[in-house]
């Protein structure tokens, strides 16, 4: 474990806590893409198939359980919670994410570390996570002003993978034979997708103005 990876995991956890706070405090999920939340639930379930077979550390197992449980809880809230579900922007959250799932799985069948069920699903989860934010970014562009907690949620979600890139660079420089092309390239693509969001987020922070993404 290095400081970059710890910062990445803590930032990721923070993004989830901010999202839970927004939903719990405002009893609303307006501005949140349910499709992105469902994609993340698939990402974690596909990535952590080794949850019960490979024990890495208490930290590793604990975080995996947190990520799976929180993503499923958020999807449940947005679908079935009697109050929260009413504020879901159904008519704005229309990204046809089936293609993202299909393309990621097809790519995982072609490009993986080993052709085993666990490795193919792991690569699938890496590719899917890289594009999982797209429905959320589209929803932000369509819905007018973005509330602070939603903006912070997306910001931390984007920042965590940037920390992971620093972690991979650090491990590449300090560990012999360390290579992680699948996660590394996907991580760069994933972080790049946030580039314009980060720009407008920085502008809104600098001008102390409401975050507004151009349509």
């Amino acid at each position: 474990m290095n400081i970059f990876r710890l910062a990445g995991d803590m930032t990721h956890l923070l993004s989830i806590l901010v999202l839970l706070l927004k939903i719990y405090a405002t009893k609303s999920c307006s501005g949140i893409s349910r499709k992105t939340q469902e994609l993340y639930a698939i990402v974690f379930m596909a990535r952590y198939l080794d949850l019960f077979t490979d024990f890495i550390s208490v930290y590793n197992t604990f975080m995996k359980l947190i990520f799976i449980a929180s993503s499923l809880a958020i999807v449940w809230c947005m679908r079935f919670h009697p109050v929260v579900r009413r504020s879901y922007d159904r008519e704005l959250d229309t990204f046809r994410y089936f293609f993202l799932v299909g393309a990621s799985f097809a790519l995982a069948l072609v490009w993986h570390d080993k052709f085993t069920l666990q490795e193919v699903f792991w690569a699938f989860s890496i590719y899917l996570e890289a594009v999982a934010i797209l429905p959320q970014l589209v929803l932000l562009q369509r819905s007018g002003n973005v509330d602070n907690l939603t903006g912070q949620y997306v910001f931390f979600l984007g920042a965590y993978r940037a920390f992971y890139i620093l972690n991979w660079i650090y491990r590449y420089m300090t560990e012999p034979r360390f290579t992680r092309w699948i996660a590394g390239i996907s991580g760069v693509v994933q972080t790049a997708l946030y580039a314009d969001f980060f720009y407008y987020y920085f502008i809104s922070w600098k001008n102390n103005s409401k975050l507004k993404l151009p349509a």
């Binding site: 990876r5 995991d9 080794d50 995996k64 560990e175 034979r177």
Partner: peptide
């Protein structure tokens, strides 16, 4: 865990 295998990361 074998160092360098990716299952040590989240």
């Amino acid at each position: 865990v074998v160092e360098g295998n990716h299952h040590d990361e989240l």
